[in-house]
Write a protein that binds this DNA or RNA. Sequence first.
DNA 1: CTTGGCGATTGATCCCGGTCAAACCGCGAG
DNA 2: CTCGCGGTTTGACCGGGATCAATCGCCAAG
Lengths: 237, 237
Amino acid sequence: MRPTCRTCAIRPSAVCRALPPEALDQINRLSHRKHLTAGRTLFAAEDGDHTVATVLAGVAKTSVTSADGRTQIVGLHFPGDFIGRPHAAGSANMVEAATDMDVCLFDKSRFEALLREHDGLSRLLMARMTEDLDAARQWMFLLGHKSAAERLASFIALCIDRLEPRCGADTEAKPASRIDLPLSRTEIGHFLGLTIETVSRVLRRLQTAGVIEIESGRGIRVVDREALAATASAATD
Amino acid sequence: MRPTCRTCAIRPSAVCRALPPEALDQINRLSHRKHLTAGRTLFAAEDGDHTVATVLAGVAKTSVTSADGRTQIVGLHFPGDFIGRPHAAGSANMVEAATDMDVCLFDKSRFEALLREHDGLSRLLMARMTEDLDAARQWMFLLGHKSAAERLASFIALCIDRLEPRCGADTEAKPASRIDLPLSRTEIGHFLGLTIETVSRVLRRLQTAGVIEIESGRGIRVVDREALAATASAATD
DNA sequence: CTTGGCGATTGATCCCGGTCAAACCGCGAG
DNA sequence: CTCGCGGTTTGACCGGGATCAATCGCCAAG
């Protein structure tokens, strides 16, 4: 009953979907799954790691830290996302598990061989990297110009978008949806370029405005998706 | 006397260097050079463009603009840089010439064919995209956590690093170096997440501090490289 | 020459979010 | 049960940079 690539639930949303069915057994041999508890380091900075990974469950974070200790989370990696730097020098930034998570690991050089062998995989990966770059640039806009409320709303919208269990069939809007935020208040601050206090205050303000409901700790319920989207992109209040 | 790939001065620093000499005539036929005056649009947003490019001279900027008019410059493209989104849907952001510039254009599908044909080109491009992503993430740190002075110093250091005419042989420090900034004050503001007034003031402050000298307009002379690097602090690496 | 336009500079004031400080809350250990 | 600890919330105050506004410098057109 050991899980294999054949039965992999996230394969349709992972880069592996570019591989033909015949290759599944091959990549099944090359990969191995691993469970990581929250906080565990996946790739260290300044470390010539030789692994790439696909997120199966949970969320990972990539962060940049300066000499004087300031930290910026520069990317989140949700289920289906690819993490790694094929054909590039080992990681420049640190990647850690933000929540408990499961990953599917490949040896980097083996994966590079796969890329050479399967053109579709190479193309899909390149498209993914382009998406990552677009996402990073969108976040640069957020960090450069958005107000605290816009930042929080954008962050919540992102999490809802990537984490809400979606039931393939119904695409129509739901009255309310709840998720557990994958980051602590401190981490949210580091992701949004805000302090923990501001995060807390603005979250509260969004709650009194009737946009969201904060459950104890990380639980959050979006009451008004419209208002959330509006707050994410427009001027405050 | 028409310039060709054989005599191309920036080829050593462009992705084309991954192509074997035998392929030079081939890519020479596939590419064509173009001059763009400052402000001209290279790729429009929301536009299924079918071109990719290498910067030969001058500087291009990629920017994100929100519905309400706020603009963020999310990337600069210096000579040798590759611009384009092979294997991905046409551009998400707008790319414009920041200064007068020369580019070398390829038809996107032809370039994709080249990628398939030449494995080394594919690998180098992937490495370049990884670098771009790293640069974007470094800039996210700047936008999220750096002070105005740190931002300006980082920006000037970046420009010096990429634009200063470097004489291959001598790597040792020079007493002073001057360049023309590739962006107007307004654009610098959009790149750094600051207002034009703050840019002006901080630049002045850096001058009175003896770090730089501002010549009329865009000309700038770095008097104290050490101090500049120190002001940029929080490692740009 | 004057005029007008655009970008840059400089000054005065305001406000959002940072900083400092003090509870508060849930939870596991003793 | 109490204690202590880490994460969170809340309040009071402060300051860096935004905003508003006036002026300057340069250059091209009249």
